[in-house]
Simulated assay, not measured.
Amino acid sequence: MAGEPQADCLFCKIVEGKIPATVVRETATTLAFRDINPQAPTHVLVIPKAHYPDAASLAAAEPLVAADVLTEAALVAADEGLSERGHRLVFNTGAGAGQVVFHAHAHVIGGRGLQWPPG
């Protein structure tokens, strides 16, 4: 069921403390941790603690938690010194868009030039 921890979800296991992560911020509803395969000098994932498969399902079911994810992403960017330099905030939705872990998450990416389009 959406919102409930999923036994086979990597990010649910991180939230539960079963898999270690380098946590940079935590609130009652969110967790932010460094990506283990960073695509830039700063690459932090911000996730809701509740399980939703993607950003759209999170926003539909829990708009306030979706807002918490965005707020925390902005605070991560500030903490990492990216607010002035700029950063990218990415939500991949679906395998065709590059989503690998099907637990809603935002990528906060920065610390180098970020060309557009990405790739």
Rank of each mutant, 00 (worst) to 15 (best):
T93W: 10
G86A: 02
L82G: 04
H51G: 03
D54H: 14
P63M: 11
Y52T: 06
A56W: 07
T30I: 06
N92I: 09
T29P: 02
F102H: 08
R34P: 11
D35Q: 12
G98D: 08
E80M: 07
A74R: 11
E26L: 06
P48I: 01
F33V: 10
H107K: 07
E62K: 15
A40G: 06
F102N: 04
L89Q: 04
H107Q: 03
A55W: 09
E72W: 02
V46Y: 02
A32S: 05
V100P: 06
A50L: 06
L75C: 11
G111I: 14
I47G: 00
P41C: 13
G94P: 08
H87V: 03
A32L: 08
Y52A: 01
V100E: 15
T71E: 10
S83T: 15
L75A: 14
R88N: 03
S57A: 14
A73H: 02
H107G: 01
V108R: 00
Q99V: 13
G96I: 11
A97R: 07
V90P: 00
V69K: 05
T93R: 13
V101C: 07
G96Y: 07
G96F: 09
V76G: 01
A73K: 04
F102P: 00
G111Y: 13
T93C: 12
Q39C: 09
A106L: 15
T93I: 13
P63N: 10
V108I: 08
L82E: 03
P53G: 05
I36P: 06
N92G: 11
T93S: 11
P38E: 08
H103S: 00
T42P: 01
Q99S: 12
H87Y: 15
T29H: 13
G111L: 14
A50V: 03
A104P: 04
D79H: 11
V24G: 03
A40T: 02
L89G: 01
V100T: 15
A66T: 07
N92D: 15
I36M: 14
A106R: 02
I47T: 00
L45T: 03
A95C: 08
V46T: 09
L89D: 05
A50M: 07
D54K: 14
P48A: 09
L31S: 03
V76I: 09
N37V: 12
T30A: 07
H87G: 00
V100Y: 12
T30S: 06
G86K: 04
V76L: 11
Q99R: 07
P53N: 05
G94W: 10
A66C: 12
P38N: 08
G86E: 02
N92A: 14
H105T: 00
A95I: 12
F91D: 10
F102K: 00
D79W: 09
T29Y: 10
D79A: 15
I36L: 15
R85I: 06
G111C: 15
V46C: 10
F102G: 05
A66H: 04
G81L: 12
F33Q: 05
V69C: 13
V101S: 03
A74P: 05
V46D: 05
N92Q: 12
E62L: 13
Y52N: 01
A73W: 05
V90M: 04
Y52F: 15
V108C: 02
H105F: 04
G110P: 07
